[in-house]
């Protein structure tokens, strides 16, 4: 007979693993990826694959250089790459996309200690840095379905609907407007988001709080104009941000109360930036700002244990 193994309990484990969670989120982005290819052509697919490969390569290299355990198999680097691609215009030169991957994986994630230790969402941080340093290329939107051949575009560039303010609501819903790869098609993002909520991967609290706050703020601001509200919900990166960025486990609060505060905060900041700021889009900035507040939100939204008694004079 073999030797018996002695291990601490529990002797059974749930099937869910970090890798499966990452794969689920990647799967939830597939509809958006398909929409991106339909709207922006095969170059969109190239951009997504390129960003995924770059991110995984950077992660792998980093772990080798830092002599740490290899982590590319957990899928988080691939997910970051895909999310970053979703945040880029299809016309962006590939070397600039690679720079984005470097910022996301090396600077924002690995230098802070890798998965679970980064304080800001890597894809969001990379997008913001690219946006501020390469503003021209990052805002070179093209009109969907204007590709002349598979890998080239004619020069028709267009403003994002948030700048022009003239897009049709249905076009925004189905994504036939200018913008980043993954954020134009609200329908695909909603589908993916609902899939994630259904699978129990993300909490519905954050997206509901975020989108709900945006809806309320825009309604009040416009004096009850439903068209204006829908326009702001569907245009820009709100859906992508609310379902895929503001729900990132690592950089957002851990309790549902915290997630509620986080979502509402993101909503208010996005609205303020869009309505009164210099930038047409505020999703990335608002999520980054709330990422920074997350440790404080966590501190004030600790759970109240069942059966716990507060000792007189203790600060808890």
């Amino acid at each position: 007979m073999k030797l018996l193994r002695v291990t601490p309990s529990p002797h059974i484990r749930d099937n869910m693993t970090t890798q499966k969670i990452m794969l689920c989120v990647i799967a939830a982005l597939v509809p958006s990826a398909v929409a991106a290819v339909i709207h922006f052509g095969w170059l969109a697919l190239l951009m997504m694959v390129f960003c995924v490969v770059c991110s995984v390569a950077f992660e792998g290299l980093c772990r080798i250089i830092m002599k740490r355990e290899q982590t590319i198999r957990d899928g988080s680097a691939a997910l970051t790459g895909l999310l970053l691609a979703m945040n880029l215009p299809v016309t962006l030169p590939l070397w600039e996309a690679a720079l984005g991957c470097f910022i996301a994986i090396v600077v924002v994630k690995q230098l802070f200690g890798g998965l679970g230790q980064n304080f800001a969402n890597p894809a969001i941080a990379a997008r913001i840095i690219l946006m501020l340093s390469l503003t021209g290329d990052m805002t070179n939107w093209i009109q969907p379905r204007t590709a002349v051949s598979d890998f080239s575009y004619d020069a028709v560039s267009s403003a994002t609907p948030l700048v022009s303010g003239t897009a049709n609501i249905m076009d925004l819903f189905w994504g036939s407007t200018g913008g980043c790869l993954g954020e134009t098609c609200a329908a695909a993002l909603l589908f993916g988001g609902i899939f994630l909520i259904g699978m129990g991967i993300i909490s519905p609290v954050t997206p509901f709080a975020y989108i709900g706050t945006m809806a309320v703020c825009t309604l009040i601001y416009s004096g009850g104009d439903v068209h204006f509200m829908l326009y702001h919900l569907l245009a820009g990166g709100l859906m992508l941000g609310a379902f895929f960025m503001a729900t990132d486990y690592v950089t957002t609060p851990i309790t549902w109360q915290g997630k509620l505060i986080f979502g509402v905060g993101c909503g208010i900041l996005t609205f303020l930036i869009r309505a009164f700021g210099n930038y047409p889009e505020g999703v990335s900035f608002s999520i980054l700002l709330m990422n920074i507040l997350t440790p404080y939100i966590d501190k004030f939204t600790m759970t109240k244990p069942f059966g716990g008694i507060r000792k007189a004079g203790s600060k808890a």
Binding site: M16, I21, L115, Q117, Y249, T255
Partner: peptide, 10 residues
């Protein structure tokens, strides 16, 4: 692997 702060334990 590293804690990803998913909150499932809570």
């Amino acid at each position: 692997t590293a804690c990803i702060r998913c909150g499932r334990c809570i």
